[in-house]
Amino acid sequence: MRGAIALAGLALAVAAFSAAAEDAGQIKTAQGSARIERDGKIIPAVPGAHVLQSDSIITGEDGTVGVTLADNSRLSIGPNTVMSLDKYAFDTTTYKGQMDASLKKGTMVVISGKLVKQTPGAMRIHTPSSIMGVRGTKFIVHVGQPSS
């Protein structure tokens, strides 16, 4: 019994450690309907929720989400949006890494952080038809129907 508890404790510790290792950022603001999709599971997108590499953030008609990433980059996701964080790697000692996010539809605002300051171009935003290479700035990307 004691062995089982110790084993469960160890499993929890390992799970906590691996979650921390992949942690790309945290949700800081959320309104309306918004969810995270991770490995086919749905997680509510609420303030304090962790965002990991490969997560998708999906909002409804009234939904918005704001995320601060590990390198102090900030993102916001507007209503009716599908965005996935395909790759996020950031070394807190060297500030080297890479970020690739895809905006499938809707609106996002990006403020680049330490990653791009260290390596201009290390952040890329992909849309269905284009790729944005980020040299360091605050900008909006919108994919949608005409006048939506």
């Binding site: 269905p128 700035t137 605050k138 900008f139």
Partner: peptide
């Protein structure tokens, strides 16, 4: 779908683009 990109004024006045 149409795609639009807009650069906003930087928070510290600098725009790398």
């Amino acid at each position: 779908a149409e795609e639009t990109v807009v650069v906003l004024p930087g928070e510290h006045g600098k725009i790398g683009g």
